Structure formats: C-alpha cells, structure tokens
Computed example of a mutant assay.
Amino acid sequence: MDRQTQIEIEAAAFRKLRNHLMVERPEVQNIDMMNLAGFCRNCLSRWMQEAANDRGIEMTKDQAREAFYGMPYDDWKAQNQTEASPEQRQAFDTAFRENVTDKT
C-alpha cells in the first residue's frame, strides 16, 4: 500500500471513530472512556490540535474541540454530559495522571 492510500484509510477510520462517539454513542461519558481506555473525546481533539500545531497551523484548544465535536464544547457538554460520581472523579484523576500528565 502506498503512503497516500494509508493516510486516506487512517483518516477514514478516524472519521468513523469520531462519528461513532459523537452520533452513535453520545451517551458514553468522557470520564468513563478515560477511566477505562486512558483517552476520551477531549484527548482526540487535543491530538488534532497537536497535529495542526506540529504542521504550523495555529489551532487553540477551543478550536480543536469545536472541530472535533462539531459545535462549541460547552454546548455538547450541556446536551450529553452527566455529573460524575466521586468514584468516577477519583478514577479519572488517576487515569489522567497516568495517561496525560505523566506522558507530557
């Protein structure tokens, strides 16, 4: 497989993942994803931001989130996020530290 075809296939898979998380399964909470998998929708938007910035394209955190979520993050959060339990928050603190903070 040539490099361009690989890039196109990977991009298509990413779009399918984004659609799955945003349209097909919006009820799945970011905190649960982070606690179970070590990443969430916000991580995906941050990775988009980092990729853009690496290529010299200025993209802020808010711009990346809006590009990923298809709307301002606060709007998506109000429509789809629920309040986290104390247990979820504690697990999130550990997952975030292991998968984000300690990785940078």
Rank of each mutant, 00 (worst) to 15 (best):
F14T: 06
Q88V: 06
Q90M: 14
R18A: 14
C40Q: 05
D62Y: 14
R18V: 04
D75E: 13
K61P: 02
N53L: 09
A37M: 14
N80I: 00
I31Q: 03
R25S: 09
L44V: 04
R3S: 10
Q29H: 04
D32N: 10
M22T: 01
R15W: 02
A51M: 04
L44Y: 10
R46K: 06
M59T: 02
R46S: 08
A13R: 09
A52M: 11
A64L: 10
L44C: 11
M48L: 15
F68D: 03
L44M: 15
R18F: 01
L36F: 02
Q29T: 01
R25F: 03
A12N: 11
A51S: 13
R18K: 15
M33A: 03
I31L: 05
K103I: 06
N80Q: 04
K77F: 08
N53Q: 15
M71D: 07
Q6V: 06
G56W: 06
M34C: 10
K16I: 07
N42F: 10
W76S: 03
E24C: 02
K77A: 09
M22R: 01
A52F: 06
A78Q: 12
E83P: 02
E50N: 03
R65N: 15
N80M: 01
T5A: 15
C43P: 03
W47H: 06
D75Q: 05
F92V: 02
R89V: 08
V100L: 07
Q81V: 02
L36E: 12
Y73G: 08
A51P: 00
Q90D: 15
Q81G: 03
A84E: 07
V100T: 10
N99W: 05
Q29S: 01
M33Q: 08
T82G: 14
Q6S: 09
P26L: 02
E58R: 12
R3K: 12
M48H: 08
R97W: 13
L44E: 04
K61V: 11
M33N: 02
P72Y: 04
R55F: 11
R55D: 15
M34L: 15
M34E: 08
M71K: 11
C43I: 00
D54I: 00
D32Y: 00
E10G: 10
L36A: 12
V100M: 10
K103H: 09
K61Q: 15
I7P: 03
Q88M: 11
A84Q: 03
F39Q: 07
N30E: 07
L36W: 02
A51R: 09
N53A: 07
W47Y: 13
D32L: 04
G70N: 13
S45W: 01
R46P: 00
Y73E: 12
Q49R: 10
C43D: 10
Q88K: 07
L44F: 14
E58S: 15
Y73S: 12
D75I: 02
H20T: 11
N35G: 06
F14V: 03
Q63N: 06
N53V: 11
T94C: 04
W76Q: 07
Y73R: 09
T82K: 14
K16W: 07
M34Q: 11
R55G: 15
E98H: 11
A37H: 13
N80G: 01
D75V: 04
Q81W: 05
R89Y: 03
D93T: 08
A11W: 00
R89D: 11
M22F: 01
K61S: 08
E50A: 10
N35H: 04
